[in-house]
Structure formats: structure tokens, C-alpha cells
Design a protein around this nucleic acid. Structure first.
Lengths: 117, 117
DNA sequence: TCCATATATCCAGAATACTAGAAATATGGA
DNA sequence: TCCATATTTCTAGTATTCTGGATATATGGA
């Protein structure tokens, strides 16, 4: 992932309404939610939410698809993965000594898998 | 990590000079670099860099320590880990189905360790 | 065709961020 | 004490972001 792309994604998430929006969409993945329903759920005016959704979309963090009258937004998990990878690689950068503890801590995600012996 | 803290960190990294600064400090971890040397390395006026370093420090992404006349800045890797964890947990949130592929991809960090059988 | 619904776009005011010149503060050496 | 160095703080101009009212566009149903 390019720095410029990463900055777009970081800036998109560095705003409370947008971070809440993204989290809401992650919770509703992979179905997604129509724009109006998102605005209602977060108690944000419809046009304000539209602007925020546009910023998230330009950052590649959400996708949109029209379903008759509604436009359904979905979290773009691969982009979140790329962003996370970008951050971790900044930290690692070929230096496993710095990185080890970080990856260890990421394991909570695997808690449902049988990784620990 | 609280959302508010995460937003501070995301915003701190969502700016090219600061992202470059953080990356430079990660590359120079754990020794760190004095403020003036950072400014010189990135060709940024010294007071502008001071402002950016202050923002990174308030976000907890760097620490500073005076060494006689110089103030040495260091990347705060644990904070980067917390931020990464925050992002990944947003994605996972008890849903290993969404998270699996993400953690898989994070493994490049482990390339120097003997994890793969 | 007319109307209701769902969403986006236009616009402007308020707030916040970025930048760098000038001045202030802290440290160490002569 | 005086000076040079390293950094921060003050300040203000410019640019960008956030917000929401008003309006425009798209879709589907009567």
C-alpha cells in the first residue's frame, strides 16, 4: 500500500462519526446497510452522513451498491487489512526484533482457532 | 485502547510529514534521534518539525528525553501495537470468520522466526 | 404523469490544521 | 557572565475540514 493511500485511510478513520460508521458497517458485514439507516443509527443528518460516506469510499474503506432506491454501503475489509499491514510493516521493516511482541499481541483474533498447543 | 486515543493516533499519522517522521524514528529505534537531526533529515523547518513532534507526542506515538542540549525522540512501538490491535479488533469483534485472512497476512513479520513447520 | 422516498450535490459559515517567521527558554562551554 | 547551540513557544496567515440547510437527482409505485 502506498503512503498516500494509507494517509487517505488514516484520515478517513481519524474522525469520530466516520470511525463509528466504519465500526457499524463492520458489525453488519458482509450484508452492509443503506445510507439512511446508517444516518439514523448514528443520529447524524442525512447529508452530513452522505459526505462522510463519500470520504470513506474515496479512502477505499467502504463500497456502495444501489439496491433499487437505497444505496447499500459495506465495509471493505481487505482495505482495513492493507492498512494494518502497512502500519505493521512500518514497525517491522525487516526488523523482527521490534515486531515480535506486536504480532504476539495480535493473536486474540485467533482465539477461536486452535493455535496454542 | 479508547476510541478517542485511537483517533488521536490515526490523525497524527494521517499527515505526510508526521508519517515520514514516525517511519524515520522506527528505522532508528530504539536509539531515537534529536529533533534537529529529524528536521534536517526530512528537510522541514525546525519549528515546523517541533510542532509535528508535539502532535506525535500527544498521540503517544513518540517519547522524548533530553540529552544535554538535544532532545531525543523515539518511536513508541507499544502505542503502534495498541493502534493496530484496535483496528484489527474493530474488524474481528468476536468474528473470527472475518478476521482469519487478516491475521494470515500479518505473518510476513514472522518471516525470520521459525514458525512454519 | 405525479408523488413519495432515498440519496447526493451545492453552498457557506464555523472550526481546525498547517506552516513558518520571530522571539523565548534551556543547556553547556569559554 | 557572555555566547553559541538546540529546541520550544508565540503568532498569524492560509488552507482544509466539518456541518447542515436548501436543492437536485434517481427510483418505484399509483
Amino acid at each position: 500500500m502506498e503512503s498516500e493511500t494509507a494517509i487517505l485511510a488514516l484520515a478517513a478513520l481519524a474522525q469520530s462519526t466516520r470511525l463509528d460508521t466504519f465500526r457499524l458497517l463492520v458489525r453488519h458485514a458482509p450484508d452492509g446497510m443503506p445510507a439512511g439507516e446508517i444516518a439514523r443509527a448514528l443520529a447524524v443528518p442525512q447529508n452530513t452522513m452522505s459526505a462522510h460516506l463519500n470520504i470513506l469510499a474515496r479512502a477505499g474503506l467502504v463500497t456502495s451498491e444501489r439496491h433499487s432506491r437505497m444505496i447499500v454501503y459495506r465495509a471493505a475489509l481487505p482495505r482495513l487489512r492493507d492498512l494494518t499491514l502497512f502500519l505493521v510493516k512500518d514497525c517491522c521493516g525487516g526488523r523482527a526484533d521490534l515486531c515480535g511482541s506486536l504480532v504476539e499481541e495480535l493473536n486474540p483474533c485467533r482465539s477461536t482457532e486452535k493455535v496454542t498447543p
